[in-house]
Design a protein around this nucleic acid. Structure first.
Lengths: 308, 308
DNA sequence: CATATATATACTCATAATGAGTATATATAG
DNA sequence: CTATATATACTCATTATGAGTATATATATG
């Protein structure tokens, strides 16, 4: 079959952003429409580069400078068709911005990660939704397969939802497994609607999947690049820094070992000042040594694990 | 200024592939036009997903199955304008395929990585181009800056081109530094032509940059995911496996420690057979335990470093 | 003020992971 | 038979990591 060269079919380029900030030790993401959408917009073709387009667009929406931007993924699947018949290519970005709200205030539009993925927050121990809802439903999905497939399914569930050795980096794979098992709804995908989903807020289109991609990337990245600092105020204590990492990773860390690693990697330096009035021994204030990113290929905060 | 909703400006979606194979322990990439272009083609909008589009298109070009595909990056910069006035969005992919050529034969179109990045091949020790051409030129670039910028430049050069602790994963950053220093040509970018570039074949457009992105990604990935095996024949010796990893990483590894890690990670199992007629003690043959990718979140081959 | 409680900081210790090396086995080439 | 090449098995020192004890210094409360 001969394919004639034709003018390209119309395509609209759309941007999606997973914009993260820490608000009172809670990891939050900017949303629209009562939490059901990620910020999205057209790529305005008068921008010289994609990055600059994303930056300008996000800063216009949030009125806050964007510390760090990273491309996540590009989707161009068939179910992404606009009503006008255009093919939609959507390019998603991860952006980090500094803490912004005064303590206790709720900023409209900012939602906690864990509203969408409640089984991913192990900071206070194993989340109840796991044993209560997620695992039983997965077990059901395993059992309903034929013998050949059953072993495969069981291995995947056991490997990704291992309660005795929880791996926070597998977040995206866990979400995709839940999707495959028909336990999370995802509009727009070629799938039948789901009667009784597992707990956790859904989003429209595939925005929850994009969100999972962003958080998973961030969870991986904090271990080998010093990106947490983009979410911190200029001066911070090691305790604050630890709570920030814990919020992103969704699990508690061993305090003494965390300090040891941060210090011996030379990521921070003392400002000389101390905190006051926090109820407890005052802590030294530190700042990120930004020069280090030039000096050498720098590691992030390796996570010293904690048992309970 | 009010922005009226308008029909999207025409955009063409183009695919680029960094297609890698190992040929006689040499890491090679598929090219066109005598090595000056990566394979590129339009995204045919009748494909349901981008992945399937890439797979079909690459397999049609190479007549070989594609073991592994991963999205690299999406560019949509202004200098990417077709002559027809279309904006071009180009989505690049990394693909791994199995060894294909009989020993000694040169497959047309396949070119060694290190033709494009000669300073990146440390398998036989420090490449001569480094001390001979690259470093002196970089030193010149440092010196020609004013005092304030000089310190910054020096730190970046020292951090990325540290001869006493070479880090193969910094490949992309090194290329970008060379670009910034005006030492590698890159057509299509808003830059003046370069009189006397550093050794290493150039490519047209930004294809050499895309290639660097692909190899850098691969170099990072082999350390935490078992992707090398996508480049190996079904049965192989540990020596072959080691040479494969060395080819990608561009540096020699410590043999005994390499075996230790591969074995104790349970990545491979003996087939029972041995090699023969290789001039030396016969080696056991192994195969990749593909099941392991289901069983648990699996690591790649960490690289046990070697001194010389 | 005494004491409980909260947070911060300094060390210790056992184990595992890693880089480096020695020793030995078994083939081919002359 | 000997040189050479490759494969395989162990050993050893050092570092990195997980886990814990001990101590310091603030606020809150009776």
């Amino acid at each position: 079959m001969l394919r004639m060269p034709t003018a390209p079919r119309p395509v609209a380029v759309e941007l999606n952003a997973v914009l993260v900030a820490l608000i009172d030790d809670d990891p939050q993401v900017l949303t629209l429409e009562d939490g059901s959408l990620l910020p999205s917009g057209p790529f305005e073709t008068d921008h010289p580069t994609l990055q600059s387009g994303v930056r300008a667009w996000v800063e216009r929406q949030t009125h806050h400078p964007l510390g760090y931007v990273e491309q996540l993924y590009t989707f161009a699947d068939r179910y992404r068709e606009s009503t006008m018949g255009y093919r939609i290519v959507s390019i998603s970005y991860l952006g980090l911005t500094r803490e912004r709200a005064a303590a206790g205030q709720h900023e409209p539009g900012w939602q906690s990660f864990y509203r969408y993925f409640p089984w991913e927050d192990w900071r206070e121990g194993q989340p109840k939704v796991l044993a209560g809802a997620v695992l039983p439903r997965l077990k059901g999905w395993v059992e309903q397969a034929s013998d050949a497939a059953k072993r495969d399914r069981r291995q995947r569930v056991d490997g990704n939802f291992d309660l005795s050795a929880w791996n926070e980096e597998l977040m995206l794979q866990r979400y995709e497994l839940l999707y495959e098992a028909g336990l999370v709804p995802e509009a727009g995908r070629p799938r039948k609607p789901i009667a009784d989903p597992v707990p956790g807020e859904p989003m429209r289109y595939d925005h929850r999947r994009i969100l999972a991609t962003g958080i998973a990337r961030l969870r991986a990245k904090i271990k080998y690049r010093p990106v947490v600092f983009e979410l911190m105020p200029p001066d911070f204590t090691l305790g604050q820094l630890q709570r920030a990492v814990e919020a992103l990773a969704g699990r508690p860390l061993h305090k003494q070992n965390f300090r040891r690693q941060v210090e011996q990697q030379g990521l921070v330096e003392e400002t000389g000042a101390m905190t006051a009035g926090t109820g407890g021994r005052p802590a030294k204030l530190y700042r990120f040594r930004r020069e280090i990113m030039l000096e050498r290929a720098v590691a992030g905060s390796k996570l010293p694990l904690a048992r309970s």
